[in-house]
Amino acid sequence: MVHLRDLTVTFTGGSKPVRAVSGVSLDVRRGETVALIGESGSGKSVTMRTLLRLHPERRTQMGGTARVAGRDVLALSGRALADYRGKVASMIFQEPLLALDPVYTVGAQIVESLRRHEGLDRAAAHQRALALFERVRIPSPERRLAAYPHEMSGGMRQRAMIALALACSPQLLLADEPTTALDATVQIQILLLLRELQRDLGLACIFVTHDIGAAVEVADRMAVMYAGRIVEEGTVRELIHTPRHPYTIALLQSRAHGAMARGTPLPTIAGSPPDLAALPPGCAFAARCALASDACRAAQPMAVQFSPTHQARCIHTEQAAAMLAVPA
């Protein structure tokens, strides 16, 4: 469903070009969920938005290969791009209050999408929107269709955003941190809903999150991004139980867990991510890595394959595995 090879995204609007995505390669099969995890600024959302071509065209340079359902996304333009968005790939944004138009009711926005892509008349589109609201378990769906975004709670808006994303039966669902602004109980409800919908509809899904626990709930595979690159990729079990990149291990160790003694300080990753406008020639994580050597700083490490599904870009994978101290 998704085939990325050496995808690059560079923003040129500032004083210096910013390479936000540097050679990302990723495949997602039909019916599969892949989670992208990493710190803010690692390139997760930029990669997602590239799959919908949402970056400003004049200030963005894109290279490599990006194919979705057989379509060359980087070559789409005009009517073909408009037909692709929503019908082939759609997105659940992080903050639905900003993604939904505040001057139209939520129902009107879903009806517009259905009329544009499905060719339905207004009455049929309204009935379809009502069925979508019932599917995502919005109470009093008829009344909520007539509500404006600001009149709905955060969890309800996110469900409406999911309904809008699914309105035209897309083949690929892009979920950009859909639970970040929600409280813990609502987060769980949204995660369970996404997992159920993905399974029932057979969608391919890319799920962006900071929360490894959320990724474990919904994903089949995980890809860890740092400074615009995928530094480790594997199944959820492989990355949780046998991570091989120091950054993945540091992310796992930075999580609170039940085995921690009361009063124990939470481990942190020292330093800050690098400036994407001045990336170092070698491994971008070297300045924060306890295992870094001169070889790490001199050139980008090649991917080391551990299984057909598990690989990591690091020359110290054996030492990284030895320093692992993450409870199961």
Rank of each mutant, 00 (worst) to 15 (best):
V18Q: 03
V18A: 09
R19T: 14
R19I: 10
A20H: 11
A20Q: 03
V21C: 06
V21S: 02
S22L: 10
S22P: 03
S22K: 08
G23N: 09
G23W: 08
G23Q: 11
G23H: 10
V24P: 04
V24N: 04
V24G: 04
S25N: 13
S25Q: 13
S25F: 12
L26G: 05
D27G: 10
D27C: 06
D27V: 05
V28K: 02
V28N: 07
R29N: 14
R29W: 11
R30N: 12
R30D: 14
G31Q: 13
G31T: 13
G31F: 14
G31N: 14
E32N: 13
T33D: 14
T33Q: 12
V34P: 02
V34Q: 04
V34L: 09
A35T: 03
A35Y: 05
L36Y: 00
L36I: 05
L36Q: 02
L36T: 02
L36H: 07
I37G: 00
I37R: 00
G38P: 03
E39Q: 15
E39H: 14
S40C: 04
G41Q: 11
G41V: 13
G41C: 09
S42N: 06
S42I: 02
S42D: 04
S42C: 10
S42V: 07
G43C: 05
G43L: 02
G43V: 02
G43N: 04
G43K: 02
K44G: 00
S45D: 03
S45L: 04
V46Y: 00
V46W: 00
V46C: 02
T47P: 00
T47D: 01
T47S: 01
T47Y: 00
M48I: 14
M48K: 03
M48Q: 03
M48E: 08
R49T: 10
R49F: 08
R49C: 06
T50Y: 00
T50W: 01
L51E: 04
L51Y: 04
L51M: 14
L51P: 01
L51C: 07
L52G: 01
L52T: 03
L52Y: 03
R53D: 09
R53C: 08
L54V: 00
L54F: 02
L54P: 01
L54I: 03
L54Y: 02
L54H: 03
H55G: 03
H55M: 12
H55L: 14
H55R: 10
P56I: 09
E57Q: 15
E57A: 15
R58G: 15
R59D: 15
R59T: 15
R59N: 14
T60K: 08
T60V: 10
Q61R: 12
M62E: 08
M62D: 05
M62A: 12
G63S: 12
G63Q: 08
G63M: 12
G63V: 12
G63D: 10
G64C: 09
G64E: 07
G64N: 10
G64F: 05
T65P: 07
T65K: 15
T65G: 07
T65N: 09
T65R: 15
A66T: 01
R67Q: 13
R67F: 08
R67E: 14
V68C: 10
V68S: 07
A69E: 15
A69V: 13
A69L: 11
